[in-house]
Design a protein around this nucleic acid. Structure first.
Length: 906
RNA sequence: GGGAGGUUAGCUCAGCGGUUAGAGCACCUGCCUUACACGCAGGGGGUCGCGGGUUCAAAUCCCUCACCUCCCACCA
C-alpha cells in the first residue's frame, strides 16, 4: 500500500478518460490526457517523499530557475532528465524526492522590476527600499506561479509539499548561519579592494560575472618627462584617461634600457605630479616600450603591482563611470569615454602624444548588461575559498564526486586550482541582506539576528549593512538549505547527501563548484555523488537561441503542438555526452509519431486480445517461437536500457526503446501475431504475451514518456496486478534471464533468420516489379537441419509475411528468381497470373548486374584477406572463421545471381 | 597565451579496433494490405576533414596540419 498524504487527505483515484478495456479514441491526441494525469498524480500524492523511510532514498534537487520569467528550452531538457531519473528510481522502489523551487536571482530580477518601474515613470530610489521590495515580491509570486505551471506541463514529478525559494524564511536562516560561521572562522572578511564594478548596475560583481571580449582598440604612446633631466620616456596604454590616477611608472628589473631610472621619478603630464619609477618582474619588456604607467586604483595588474611597492592609489573614476574631483577640475564630472577623448586631445596639444596604434585586446564586460566593467576600489565582503577549493578538488580525485561526462574533470581542476577570493557583496536591494550591523562608532557585528548583534554590541542603536549577498551564495547552499540545514531535520537525515545533480555545463563554476565547496565545508559531505552536465540547447542550425535572433523555442508552445512526451523524448534522446543539443521541431514531430505508434499498437492489442490479461510472471511453457522470441528480445532490451540509464546514456536508452517498440514489437511481433489472433494459424496465449510485452514496454518507457504510458497502461486488462493504481509506482522492468533464448540453436537465431528471409523475399518481389497483391510461390532450402525444421514450422507465418500463395521446402524451381541469405536458399516464382508484362525489363537486368559487380568486389576483398597468412595466423579464430563463412555465402549468392540473369535472357 | 571538444549520408547526430559504417528527418518507387498515411514495404545516397604512423585489421589508437565551437587567462 502507498500512503497518500497530499494536503493531508486521501486521494480518490478517478480516471481522466481511461479505464481498462475502454475503447481508445482513434485519434492520438496528447492534449486529451496530459494535463489531466498531472493533476491526478498530484492529487494522489504519488510524488510526496517520506522522511524518515524504510526504503532507500533517492534525491535530486531542481536547479532553481530564476523568478525572472518563463522556463526556456534548456530548463525543459534538465527537467526531462531529472524527472526521468526520479521516475526511474521511484519505479525501482526508492523513496524518491525531486525537490522543486526557485531562485530569487538578485541582479536579474531587480533589473526586471526596475525596468517595469521605469515604464511607469518611477524608479526604485523614488520608491525606497521597502516599497521597492514589496514590488519585487509581487513579481516573484507571479513568475513563480508560471514556473510551477510549466513544470506541471512537462510532467515533472516534483514533491510540491517541499517547494523552496532561496529567499524564503528557512533558506534565509541557512544563509545567515552559513555567513556567520564562515565569518567566525575568518573566511569571510570585509575590506577595501579593487573589484569588478558595473557602472550601469552600480554594484560589484564577481570575477565569473565578467566576460572577456576582444575589442579593436588603440594603444596610445605617451611621453612622460623624467624629473631633473631633459629626457622623456614613453609609456603605452589602452586607457589614457586613467593616467590621471597614475602613481608610478614600472619597468622590468633586468631591462638594461631603464635600469638607470631606478630611484628617480617622472612628471605626470597634464597633472604635474611627481611619480616614482619602480622595477617589477611582472612587467613584460617586450610589450610596447617596456614601460608601464601604474594606476593602482583602476587596473588589476597595477593594483597588485602597487601593493608590492607600497604605492598609493588615486580614484579618478566614480561608481557611475564618471571622473572624480581627484581627476582634476578639467575632467571632473566627465564620462570615462569623454574623459578619454579630452585627455588625448590635451596630450596631443601639449606635445606628449607620441603615437597612436591600432591594437586588439581583451576588455572585461558585464555578463548581465554587456557594458564594460570598470575596475574600482571599494569596500566589499569577500569569501576566502582556497581551502574549500582544495577539498572540492580532492572530492573529484578520491571519487566521492563524479562528473559525467568526465571531460569536465580538467576544467574543474584548472578552475579550482587557480581560484581567488569571491566577492560576495552586491550593492542591490533584492537579496539576502548581509547579517552585519554597525554601531555609531562604526564597529561591525556579524550575527545571526539583530538581537544577537545588539547583545554583542551592547546597544540596539545599530544599522544593518545595506548590501546583499551574491545570489550564488544562497544557491551554493541549495542541496542542504532546502532540507532544513542547519536544523538536523528528518529530511536532511533522509535525503542528504543527494544523489545526482543535473545541470547545464555553463554553470559548472557559478553553481556546481560553489555547492561542492560550501557543502564540504559546512556539512562535511559532497552534496551529490554525481553531476550530469548537459549541453546547451541550440536551434536546428546549431545556433545559440536568442531573442534578438528570433530563434527561441518556447517549451510551452512546443508542448501545445507536440505534447510533453514527444518533447521529453526528443530532448532526452539528444543528450549525448559533452555535446550541445540542436533542437529541430521536425524531430519532435518524429517522436510525436512514435507516440502515435504506441497509441495505435495499444489500440490494436486491446481490440484483439479477447479475455487475455497482463501477466506479472509469465510461464514460457507451451509458447510458440514468435512469443518466445519477443519475450527474449524484451528481456535483453530491459537489461540494456537499465545499463544505459545507470551510465547516464539516456540517448542510447531512448534509441533502444524506440527501435524495440517500433521495430521488434510493431513491425514484426504484432504482424506475426495477426495470423494467430484471427484464428488462421492459432498459437497459444498470444494475447497474454502481447499484453505482457506492452505492459513492460510501457513501464520501460514511462520515465521518458510519463503521460502516454500511464494513459495506455491504465487500459490494459490486468494492469492492477502490477500496481493497483498507477504506472508511476509500478516496478521498473529488468532482465528476465529465463526468457532469453540465445545461441545458434536459440529462438532468437531462428527468428533472426526468418526476418532476414522475409526481408529478402520482399526485396525480390520489389525487384521483380510484382504488384503488392500478386501471389508468389516461395521455396526455401536451409543448409542447416535445425534451421530448416524451424522454417518449416513457420510456413503459415512466412506465407503471411511474404504474401506467398505457397511455401515449400525445396530447391528453387526452374525460372525462379533465386537468392541466398542467412544460409537459406530462396526461390521466388511469380504466379503466372500476376507476372507483370513490363516487369523483367532492362531496369531489372541493370540492378542485377550492379549487384553482381558489388559481390565481385567483396569476394575479391574477402579472398585477399583470407589469402594473407598473417591475417589467418594472427587474427582470432572466430574472425577468420566468420570471414570464411562470409566468402562461401558471397560466392553462392553470386551463383544465384548469375542464374537469375540467365533466366532474364531466356 | 592555456585547456576542452568537434570535423561521419542533403540536414542533425550515433558509432570509437574486427565481416557489407548506422539512426531520425529529408529524398525516390510502390501501397489507404482495416492498429497506425503521425502509416506500410522497398530503394538511392558516405574515398568517416587533410597527411603520416602503429596493427593481420583503423571512422575507431598515435602524431602533424587545417578549419569550427566552447571554457579559462591582470601584456598595460
Amino acid at each position: 500500500m502507498i500512503t497518500l498524504h497530499w494536503k493531508g487527505r486521501t486521494a480518490s483515484v478517478s480516471t481522466p478518460g481511461s479505464e481498462a478495456g475502454k475503447e481508445m479514441d482513434k485519434r492520438f491526441d496528447p492534449r486529451a490526457y496530459e494535463a489531466a494525469w498531472q493533476r491526478r498524480w498530484a492529487e494522489a500524492g504519488y510524488f510526496v517523499a517520506a522522511a524518515p523511510s524504510e526504503k532507500p532514498s533517492f534525491c535530486l534537487m531542481i536547479p532553481p530557475p530564476n523568478v525572472t520569467g518563463k522556463l526556456h528550452i534548456g530548463h525543459a531538457l534538465m527537467t526531462a532528465l531529472q524527472d526521468l531519473l526520479t521516475r526511474w528510481q521511484r519505479m525501482r522502489g526508492k523513496n524518491a524526492l525531486f525537490l522543486p523551487g526557485t531562485d530569487h536571482a538578485g541582479i536579474a530580477t531587480q533589473l526586471m522590476v526596475e525596468r517595469q518601474l521605469a515604464k511607469e515613470g518611477t524608479s526604485r530610489r523614488e520608491l525606497g527600499r521597502e516599497r521597492f521590495l514589496e514590488r519585487v515580491w509581487a513579481w516573484k509570486e507571479q513568475y513563480q506561479g508560471n514556473i510551477r505551471e510549466q513544470l506541471d506541463l512537462l510532467g515533472a514529478s516534483c514533491d510540491w509539499s517541499r517547494e523552496r525559494f532561496t529567499l524564503d524564511e528557512g533558506l534565509s536562516r541557512s544563509v545567515r548561519e552559513a555567513f556567520v560561521r564562515l565569518y567566525e572562522e575568518g573566511l569571510i572578511r570585509r575590506g577595501e579592494y579593487l573589484v569588478n564594478w558595473s557602472p550601469v548596475l552600480e554594484t560589484a560583481v564577481s570575477d565569473l560575472e565578467v566576460e572577456m571580449k576582444t575589442v579593436q582598440g588603440k594603444l596610445y604612446h605617451i611621453a612622460y618627462p623624467v624629473e631633473g633631466s631633459e629626457q622623456r620616456i614613453v609609456v603605452a596604454t589602452t586607457r589614457p584617461e586613467t593616467m590621471l590616477g597614475d602613481t608610478a611608472v614600472a619597468f622590468h628589473p633586468e631591462d638594461e634600457r631603464y635600469r638607470h631610472l631606478t630611484g628617480r621619478a617622472a612628471i605626470l603630464p597634464l597633472v604635474g605630479r611627481r611619480i616614482p619609477f619602480v622595477a617589477d618582474p611582472a612587467v613584460e619588456p617586450e610589450f610596447g616600450t617596456g614601460l608601464v604607467k601604474v594606476t593602482p586604483f583602476h587596473d588589476p595588474f597595477d593594483f597588485e603591482l602597487g601593493r608590492r611597492h607600497g604605492l598609493p592609489g588615486i580614484s579618478v573614476i566614480d561608481r557611475r563611470g564618471r571622473m572624480t574631483a581627484e581627476a582634476g577640475p578639467d575632467f571632473a564630472g566627465l564620462d570615462r569615454a569623454e574623459a578619454r577623448a579630452k585627455v588625448v586631445e590635451r596630450l596631443r596639444a601639449e606635445g606628449y602624444l607620441v603615437k597612436v596604434e591600432s591594437h586588439v585586446h581583451n576588455v572585461g564586460h558585464s555578463q548581465r548588461g554587456g557594458e564594460p566593467i570598470e575596475p574600482l576600489v571599494s569596500t566589499q565582503w569577500f569569501l576566502e575559498v582556497s581551502g574549500m577549493a582544495g577539498r572540492a578538488l580532492s572530492a573529484l580525485h578520491d571519487g566521492s564526486l563524479k562528473l559525467v561526462p568526465d571531460t569536465f574533470d580538467k576544467t574543474w581542476e584548472h578552475w579550482l586550482s587557480n581560484i581567488r577570493p569571491w566577492c560576495i557583496s552586491r550593492q542591490l536591494w533584492w537579496g539576502h541582506q548581509i547579517p552585519a550591523w554597525y554601531d555609531e562608532a562604526g564597529r561591525c557585528f556579524v550575527a545571526r539576528s539583530f538581537e544577537e548583534a545588539a547583545k554583542a554590541a551592547g546597544t540596539d542603536r545599530l544599522t544593518q549593512d545595506e548590501d546583499v549577498l551574491d545570489t550564488w551564495f544562497s544557491s551554493g547552499l541549495w542541496p542542504f538549505s532546502t532540507l532544513g540545514w542547519p536544523e538536523e531535520t528528518a529530511d536532511l537525515a533522509t535525503f542528504y547527501p543527494t544523489d545526482v545533480l543535473v545541470t547545464a555545463h555553463d554553470i559548472l563554476f557559478f553553481w556546481v563548484a560553489r555547492m561542492v565547496m560550501m557543502g564540504l565545508h559546512l556539512t562535511d559531505k559532497v552534496p551529490f555523488a554525481t553531476v550530469h552536465l548537459t549541453g546547451l540547447v541550440r536551434d536546428a542550425a546549431g545556433e545559440k537561441m536568442s531573442k534578438t535572433k528570433g530563434n527561441v523555442l518556447d517549451p510551452s508552445e512546443l508542448i501545445a503542438e507536440y505534447g510533453a512526451d514527444a518533447l521529453r523524448f526528443t530532448l532526452t534522446s539528444l543528450d549525448s555526452p559533452g555535446r550541445d543539443i540542436p533542437l529541430n521541431p521536425e524531430q519532435i514531430a518524429g517522436y510525436r509519431a512514435f507516440g502515435n505508434k504506441i497509441w495505435n499498437a495499444a489500440r490494436f492489442c486491446l481490440s484483439r486480445v479477447g479475455e487475455a490479461r497482463v501477466a506479472g510472471h509469465l510461464d514460457l511453457t507451451g509458447l510458440a517461437a514468435p512469443e518466445r522470441w519477443i519475450l527474449s528480445r524484451l528481456s535483453r532490451v530491459a537489461g540494456e536500457v537499465g545499463e544505459r540509464l545507470e551510465g547516464y546514456r539516456f540517448d542510447e536508452a531512448c534509441n533502444l526503446l524506440y527501435h524495440f517498440f517500433w521495430g521488434d514489437l510493431c513491425d514484426w511481433y504484432i504482424e506475426l501475431s495477426k495470423p494467430a489472433l484471427t484464428g488462421e494459424a492459432p498459437r497459444p496465449r498470444v494475447g497474454e504475451v502481447l499484453l505482457t510485452v506492452l505492459d513492460r514496454s510501457l513501464r520501460l518507457l514511462h520515465p521518458v514518456m510519463p503521460f502516454l504510458t500511464e494513459e495506455v497502461w491504465q487500459r490494459l486488462p490486468g494492469h492492477e496486478a502490477i500496481h493497483p493504481e498507477t504506472i508511476c509506482l509500478a516496478p521498473y522492468p529488468e532482465r528476465e534471464p529465463a526468457w532469453e533464448d540465445l545461441g545458434a540453436e536459440g529462438v532468437e537465431a531462428g527468428m533472426e533468420a526468418l526476418i532476414q528471409v522475409v526481408t529478402r523475399v520482399r526485396a525480390l518481389r520489389a525487384e521483380l516489379n510484382l504488384p503488392p497483391k500478386a501471389g508468389i510461390a516461395l521455396t526455401l532450402l536451409a543448409a542447416d537441419d535445425g534451421l530448416a525444421q524451424f522454417l518449416a514450422d513457420q510456413e503459415p507465418l512466412l506465407a503471411f509475411l511474404c504474401r506467398a500463395d505457397a511455401v515449400a521446402t525445396a530447391t528453387p524451381r526452374e525460372g525462379a528468381r533465386r537468392d541466398l541469405v542467412a544460409g537459406v536458399e530462396i526461390g521466388v516464382l511469380a504466379s503466372a497470373a500476376s507476372r507483370s508484362p513490363e516487369g523483367l525489363g532492362g531496369a531489372e537486368r541493370e540492378r542485377l548486374e550492379k549487384e553482381r559487380e558489388r559481390l565481385d568486389g567483396e569476394i575479391a576483398r574477402a579472398e585477399e584477406r583470407l589469402g594473407n597468412e598473417t591475417f589467418v595466423s594472427k587474427a582470432p579464430a572466430q574472425v577468420v572463421e566468420g570471414n570464411r563463412r562470409k566468402l562461401a555465402e558471397l560466392k553462392e549468392r553470386r551463383e544465384h545471381l548469375v542464374a537469375s540473369l540467365a533466366t532474364l535472357d531466356a
